[in-house]
């Protein structure tokens, strides 16, 4: 009989090695993530709900090309969350989602641009993305915990990794889908690669990239909930406690708040595209 291959042990060794030798890098990442998260969290939490809700409604109204129904729906949903006394938790979750999406886009969009211009890089990253997207989301929690222990930062790390693939894929796709003639226009009029990217490729790919942003946000929201298992704060934690105590009321209310957030985020990002 063939002995069991020691894949698990090898990965464990690798993790040990990283922890021991790259501790400084992990610290830097932790500090960076914390800063971004706290920034968004502070802004969202410091504003009282009665001021926040109308501001958000106006914002929704404007970015959605004056969709009054969507604005009213957002007001109703947020008032319900406030009424259920889940405001602070919801803002925490929102901060996690926004911060994670922000970082995922910050890394994902440039990688997508790179992949669109380089077939070798595209082939490599495609395999990696397939791997990342088929891996069950819970698995991301393990290295996150090992490297960053418990709390919001490992939650964010897992969320960023989970939410990034669509940003890369759709940026890449959006740029590659631009008709050859438009690329020729840029070249024929003497555009530099940078001008071509900024004036032709990115604007042309924007609708597709925005679809990527939408998916990125939705994935971030689902992962931000799961990440409560490793100590990420917010509505997810409330659901988790509800499960542990078999408290249906508590779990359902938190779940409802997540659904409301999801609907608002989804509708807003989708209507930006159109």
């Amino acid at each position: 009989m063939i002995p069991k291959l020691p894949i698990g042990d090898l990965v464990a060794d690798l993790v040990d090695w990283i922890e021991f030798n790259l501790g400084w890098l992990l610290d830097i990442i932790t500090a960076g993530f914390k800063t971004v998260l706290n920034g968004f969290a502070d802004i969202l939490m410091i504003i009282p709900p009665l001021i926040f809700i109308p501001i958000l409604a106006i914002l929704v109204y404007l970015v959605s090309h004056r969709n009054l129904r969507l604005a009213l729906l957002s007001i109703a949903g947020l008032l319900l969350i406030w009424n259920l006394q889940l405001w602070d938790l919801s803002m925490m979750t929102l901060a996690l989602v926004i911060a994670s999406t922000f970082i995922a886009l910050l890394i994902g969009v440039p990688l997508g641009i790179l992949a669109s211009g380089n077939d070798t890089f595209d082939a490599v990253i495609r395999v990696l993305l397939d791997f990342m997207q088929t891996m069950p989301p819970f698995v991301y929690l393990i290295p996150a915990v090992i490297f960053f222990s418990l709390g919001n930062v490992p939650g964010m790390i897992a969320t960023v990794i989970f939410a990034m693939p669509p940003a890369i894929r759709l940026t890449n796709l959006g740029i590659r889908q631009i008709p050859t003639e438009l690329i020729e226009v840029a070249d024929a009029f003497g555009a530099t690669p940078r001008q071509k990217l900024l004036k032709v490729q990115l604007p042309g790919a924007l609708p597709t990239i925005m679809t990527g942003v939408n998916q990125c946000i939705m994935l971030a929201l689902s992962m931000a909930v799961i990440a409560s298992m490793i100590g990420a704060a917010g509505l997810g934690y409330q659901v988790l406690v509800g499960i542990q105590r078999v408290n249906i009321a508590m779990g359902f209310e938190a779940g409802l708040a997540i659904v409301i957030l999801a609907i608002i985020l989804d509708r807003v990002t989708q209507s930006v595209v159109r």
């Binding site: 003639e181 032709v200 604007p203």
Partner: peptide, 8 residues
């Protein structure tokens, strides 16, 4: 260009 190639 044949298909106009205007930037949309």
């Amino acid at each position: 260009f044949q298909n106009f190639a205007l930037l949309p």
